[in-house]
Design a protein around this nucleic acid. Structure first.
Lengths: 205, 205, 205, 205
DNA sequence: CATGAATGAGAATTCATTCAT
DNA sequence: GATGAATGAATTCTCATTCAT
């Protein structure tokens, strides 16, 4: 029998006896994202993260080798979660609908995960990114590659490189999102439709 | 007569003296950009910047109030230079040609100013950005707003918000540039033409 | 019947059970000696000792009160073992032969117990030593005092203080041993004979 | 003109304009030796050293790369000073008198430099030693090698290896010194004569 | 007895900035 | 203006030890 019990703020797994607490890891992640967005890489000490996460600074080192290791794992974890949301429920649609769905999913994710999204932007544009095994992060986006591949086979796209196509799908949404969080843009139904329309106009033959 | 007055806490210099001055400031800027791109905000101390710039750490404080002040001024300076390049030689063209020229200018700037471009990206996506008087940076891009305004008057654009239009002009190029510097993309003539074509397809009515 | 009682805060174990106990303690001792010689006092954490000994850090605290307690007990244990070897099989010899045998025993011990020897040297020359009840460690060397006492009664030694005599018996061998482990000296038969000869020349009347 | 002035706790050199203060380095050295002898390597933090030396912890890093660097430089500095004292005023003597003088010099040094001597012992017997370029430390002792070489040429020594000879010259004194500082031994005139006598008995043909 | 997670206290080191020249 | 030394405050990380099981 496999059951769990919350005992004294700790999630104990009776089957395998470890009591490393995953909720602590999650708390550390959340605190890091929040503080990084508020104060940036250079003003977010481990001690602050620990305090916000409700753990001791040394506890972070039980879960991660060092600060870099933690940030990189946090990035991959966050990116993976975003990828999962982005390509949910897109099966069985035609290309155009599928693309529209991906864009809508992306916008939904952004609106529901402001901090995660902004953290991803900050990280992606920092030198941390180049220290990363890029492939691992890109794997979460294979559905996008497959989508484009399918569209090309069906002959609906302009005869341009994949990379050019990609550039007109995600980056405009991302840019709109940044303006959204700066209070300069609203994701109204009309605008979302416009964004999808322009993307399609850009890439369709 | 050749003289210059700097009201920004800096004394007045005449012809021969001003070069020394500017060259140190410029050296500090260049060192900062380079190190920031290589090591990031959290691993770029003033002492390292000073060493790379060939000056004493305390010399930096002759030119800037503190680190934040320096970074912000560096950002504005860099952004302004980029804006100047981006909208050069676009007068007297029709909308479509004008837009194409802006995109070509932007790509030229990117290719000739790798470090500056990457620094702008890193800064823009960091919380430093929100501490900035955004308006000042945006002023350098008024030509873009005017271009879009003109296009709208001429009725050549889709009937969507300006922000939606913008999202399909610069962000795709920026994304392509990032891939370019990661070694994943080449700015061939064909691809540049494609990028311009897709942008036009996206926004034109 | 084979049993053992340890009054030193440790419970009583009979034949079959005692092995497990002792093997862990011994593993901790061995790991400590090795790491201390390799990395020194200031770079040998309990966690590292535990890992090398194949036990949990907390297990060390089952056997010892704390780190200091462990180190001191390890020193006394090691010193006692060395003493036992040093004075083995020296009964019934005349003074000169007895001394030669002690020196040979010491060299044998050194060669067979490199790590133990080096640990003793490090410990002896550290301030840990002065925290120790010196008498306890010296007890293991009473045979040496008796030997010198006997020699003096027989009138074979120079008329100098015991401490002066001692200084020409063990320290030269110890010094040679240190060079030996640094790869600067070989314990050939000839050299061992020389060492014994010089010691005798020094102290004999 | 070359003059110096004590200005505001700082030794200013007007000729070359540096004002790095050598007295600070010396204070750091003295504090380190004292604390190391009292508390050992593992209980002597940089902060404590700084406090005792009357400087800020960060000031230590102006003079040394890190703790290891400081300890090694301190060792070499101390060893060099000892070597200088040990071989002072030994020219023009015959071998026997020369050796006696060296031993007396060594004992004088020991008595006048208790802390330095004990520090050298602790360091020498620690793993720090093996990280050192041994040659550099040994250079300070070339006079000893020359002395032994000369004696051998004159045919006054036993026909044994140099290393065996060395073992009966310095180590007995060192051992006596350690007992001296433990309060177990007195360097009376008689005993000093005895020590010299036994050394000579040991090595002379 | 044995253990792995957790942590408070403290370790080495860094760094933005100032100070005296 | 320019500088190198100096430093207080902070930063990352370690580590002996304890806790709950």
């Amino acid at each position: 029998m496999n059951f769990r019990v919350d005992y004294n703020r700790m999630t104990v797994y009776y089957t395998n006896m470890r009591y490393k607490d995953n909720s602590k890891k999650e708390a550390i992640y959340q605190a890091t994202i929040l503080l990084l967005n508020k104060d940036g890489f250079s003003a977010t000490p481990m001690s602050k993260i620990a305090k916000h996460a409700g753990v001791s600074p040394s506890t972070i080192y039980v879960y991660f080798e060092n600060k870099d290791d933690m940030l990189k794992k946090l990035y991959l974890d966050t990116k993976q979660k975003m990828g999962a949301k982005m390509f949910a429920d897109t099966d069985g649609m035609d290309i155009k609908a599928s693309l529209a769905k991906v864009i809508r999913n992306y916008i939904d994710y952004i609106r529901e995960n402001k901090e995660a999204f902004l953290f991803l932007q900050q990280f992606t544009n920092s030198p941390y990114m180049s220290e990363l095994d890029d492939q691992e992060a890109n794997n979460y986006f294979t559905p996008m590659y497959q989508l484009v591949k399918r569209g090309r086979q069906e002959g609906v796209f302009k005869n341009v490189d994949d990379d050019v196509l990609f550039a007109y799908i995600e980056p405009p949404i991302t840019e709109a999102a940044k303006r959204y969080f700066r209070g300069e843009f609203e994701f109204t139904d009309v605008r979302i439709k416009s964004l999808i329309e322009l993307a399609w106009s850009a890439i369709k033959k």
